[in-house]
């Protein structure tokens, strides 16, 4: 167990390093919300999800939908680490002719279960996947990752209502609650808080955890799997820019790439 945790921590560190290198190379992209989601993605892909990098469209696989599509660098780095495509390709992020688009493109890159990027649309697709899984009596699970800014979108609540209505206990949504959005703190821009009671009122099972604790993420997923007839939301308190001291909790690092110098400093911290 402890050995596995250490291994996961090492993978998370590597994913963070890759994010910094990708964004520095592309000089474009979203570091803050990518870094805040690393432990969630690491746990999903390296501990929980049933996937096969050699057969990315395997019909029995668990599905993942990145509602907050701008955290694509984190997802791409995770998929490369898992073996869906060569690590070297990460450095083509956001460049012309690359399979690594600014936001996930399911038609271009293996391992992407849904094209996302326009906030608020991912959870609906996850609901559709959940309905399909139920209809086919499959036991695969669907995971979605939303931002706390993202849930300001009305469509999220349409999907939240539908997931409860159709009793989609095969669906687990994370809210990466890092507290910041482009224009500033969510509390100042348009408060989505409190998040947990909102989902609870819609009929979801709710977990609230530290989104950087591998143990807490795993435990919450384990509990979600036991819940019958209800979807689960895991509200994960996170730190935007987590792991790079000068990016942590800084709004300015939502959508700016680091310079070479800043990247060096960031990588020196990520060892």
């Amino acid at each position: 167990m402890e050995q596995q945790q250490e291994k996961l921590k090492e993978i998370a560190r590597q994913i963070r390093r890759n994010i910094i290198e990708m964004l520095t190379e592309s000089q474009s992209g979203h570091p803050g919300g990518s870094l805040s989601a690393v432990e969630i993605l690491t746990t999903l892909y390296f501990r929980e999800m049933k996937v096969d990098p050699a057969n990315p469209r395997w019909s029995e696989r668990d599905r993942f939908v990145l509602g907050k599509g701008h955290a694509a660098p984190a997802l791409f780095a995770t998929l490369a680490e898992k073996g869906f495509f060569p690590r070297e390709e990460l450095l083509t992020l956001r460049k012309i002719n690359s399979r690594l688009q600014g936001h996930p493109d399911m038609k271009k890159l293996p391992g992407i279960d849904m094209s996302t990027g326009s906030l608020g649309q991912g959870l609906s697709a996850a609901v559709g996947m959940g309905l399909a899984g139920k209809l086919d009596n499959k036991d695969y699970r669907i995971y979605a990752l939303l931002g706390d800014g993202e849930i300001e979108e009305g469509q999220v609540w349409e999907a939240t209502m539908a997931a409860a209505h159709y009793k989609l206990d095969n669906l687990t949504a994370f809210v990466d609650s890092n507290g910041l959005q482009i224009d500033g703190p969510c509390t100042e821009v348009m408060s989505p808080y409190p998040i947990a009671p909102k989902f609870a009122a819609f009929g979801w099972h709710v977990e609230e955890i530290d989104g950087h604790s591998l143990e807490e993420i795993s435990a919450a997923i384990a509990r979600a799997k036991e819940i019958k007839d209800k979807p689960t939301v895991i509200v994960a308190r996170t730190i935007k820019g987590k792991g790079v001291s000068f990016m942590e909790n800084e709004v300015g690092w939502h959508g700016n790439a680091p310079s070479e110098e800043q990247a060096k400093q960031a990588l020196a911290e990520l060892v």
Binding site: R63, D113, S124, G128, M129, G154, A159
Partner: peptide, 15 residues
């Protein structure tokens, strides 16, 4: 809820 109607249809098609 037409936005979710279309998004859910997309998820079903993806499956």
């Amino acid at each position: 809820a037409e936005q979710n109607l279309m998004g859910t249809a997309a998820g079903l098609a993806a499956s």
